[in-house]
């Protein structure tokens, strides 16, 4: 039982990270219709930013974390300016931004490897290696830090979409771009903002992940795949869907690795099985959008 509860803590930890990356996809996808596979690379850049600001410059977390988020938000915004805006301006086919973003993925990865090298880098645990016990639930302090931060971030993003005029404008663009434009909503600004906010969210995922993994220039792609899977599972239309998808994905992943009598290499395939199942049986995901296109 205790073993299972501890496993659940690590499911929540991993699920939170996957959920954040899924949310980064979603924030870009909803108003623009663009699937941004560079989201995983944004998370990796967040982790490398943590190496710079927290490991090397030794900034305290309370300053370092916002700086990392801001930096990757800026990267997200730049991504839009370089790879998306020129295409939208010329009325390029719908799929072309997806391809140019794949190109950006490679550019980011190569840039990171030439700046930081190809060796594993580390970020210290902000709260040390201590364990936290809440009754029979126990885990590392970092696990709980991740879970709390992610729940807080999801709440913020949810409030942004549901309670602010800016968020409503995003939703309007998601529902009907032409109708939104006819109301005077600035589509170009909404697109740029969605990339900046998406970048910030993915960057946060990277910063949170950095202390519990080794920071490496190839870490982005697996995150991109996991985040995308979580997005498909949870559905693209609702903020809370991304978190739900992340948690379910992590659950399947951890439980098969721990309990299934198959080699751990094969167990890594479980999430993909889940992805395929959802694409076949419930392509709209667990939570349906409310009338978005």
């Amino acid at each position: 039982m205790e073993d299972f509860l501890e496993l659940m803590v690590s499911v929540c930890e991993a699920g939170s990270i996957y959920g954040l990356v899924a949310l980064a996809y979603q924030i870009v996808l909803r108003p623009t219709g663009i699937i941004n596979f560079a989201a995983g690379e944004w998370a990796a850049i967040g982790a490398f930013a943590a190496v710079s600001f927290i490991t090397w410059w030794k900034l305290p977390l309370i300053i370092g974390l916002p700086m990392c988020i801001l930096a990757v938000g800026l990267v997200g915004w730049l991504t839009e300016v370089i790879a998306v805006q020129p295409l939208l301006k010329r009325d390029a086919p719908e799929l072309s931004p997806v391809l140019s973003l794949l190109g950006m993925l490679i550019i980011y990865r190569e840039t990171v490897s030439s700046v930081y090298g190809v060796d594993n880098l580390f970020v210290p645990m902000p709260f040390g290696f201590g364990r936290v016990e809440l009754g029979s639930i126990a885990g590392t302090s970092q696990s709980f830090f991740i879970i709390i931060t992610v729940v807080f971030s999801f709440t913020l993003v949810w409030l942004f979409f549901e309670r602010t005029m800016w968020g409503k404008a995003f939703q309007a663009v998601a529902i009907n771009r032409v109708a939104a434009a006819l109301l005077g909503i600035n589509l170009r600004l909404v697109t740029a903002m969605s990339f900046a906010i998406g970048g910030a969210v993915a960057g946060l995922a990277g910063v949170l992940l950095a202390p519990i993994t080794s920071v490496h220039f190839l870490m982005g792609l697996p995150l991109a795949v996991k985040g995308f899977t979580a997005l498909v599972i949870g559905g693209v239309g609702r903020v809370e869907g991304a978190l739900l998808g992340g948690l379910l994905l992590a659950f399947v992943e951890k439980v098969t690795i721990r309990y299934a009598p198959i080699p751990s290499g094969l167990a890594l395939g479980a999430p993909f099985l889940l992805l395929i199942l959802f694409l076949l049986l419930r392509p709209s995901g667990l939570l349906r959008a409310r009338g978005e296109q």
């Binding site: 939703q171 309007a172 978005e292």
Partner: peptide, 9 residues
């Protein structure tokens, strides 16, 4: 033309 209200809102 066609009103274009935001139906889900």
């Amino acid at each position: 033309e066609g009103r274009m209200i935001l139906a889900p809102m």
